[in-house]
Amino acid sequence: MRDHLSDGGLRPPLADRGITLGALFRCFLVIGITGFGGVLPVVVHEIVRKREWLDAEEFTEILSICQVLPGPNIVNISVLFGMRVAGLRGGLVSLMGLLLLPVALVLVLGTLYSGFADVPQVQGAVRAVAAGAAGLLIAVSLRLLWPQRRNPLVLGLGAVVVVAAAWVRWPLIWVILCFGPLSLLLTYLRMRRDG
């Protein structure tokens, strides 16, 4: 198995990639105010594609850890990423960038919404945005799957997880408790075999 992953591989550690606190704040500000119906596609767009602060594989690593931590994934990602870039200050700056404007906006919207909830155009737009958001999530799945396309463990176990979560509709906590340890064990055995 290749070993070019974060902190100690081919790319310099995150703290040495020239990311300033201001850039961090602006990045998560953009993520916060442009993320509709799920923030993940925007995070991948801003951090992986546009700024290239992380490659797809490094991002998937961070997302993996954040997925098993309690709390909103995007909050975990912002703190974990920000702290690895610039310590505690980096983590707080990212989190503030992420939450400040959306919290203010949603409170304004909440006040306005009651007056517009029944307008057909508003209802249609909300439905269409939901359909578009589903499409964005499909694209993100494919984009993060792509670097793993020759990894039989990801393809095989990933398919089993899809069946369990999307078809049988297991609660998420079961999926993680059941397949997390299995996945760790198989990865460990595979890494030991490959040296």
């Binding site: 999530l137 993100v140 990933g158 397949f179």
Partner: peptide, 20 residues
Amino acid sequence: RRGLIPVTVGLLASSAVLLT
């Protein structure tokens, strides 16, 4: 870090399926 990637990719694909 690497061992949870299969589950992460699977869960992401599941969300995409369910949302769709």
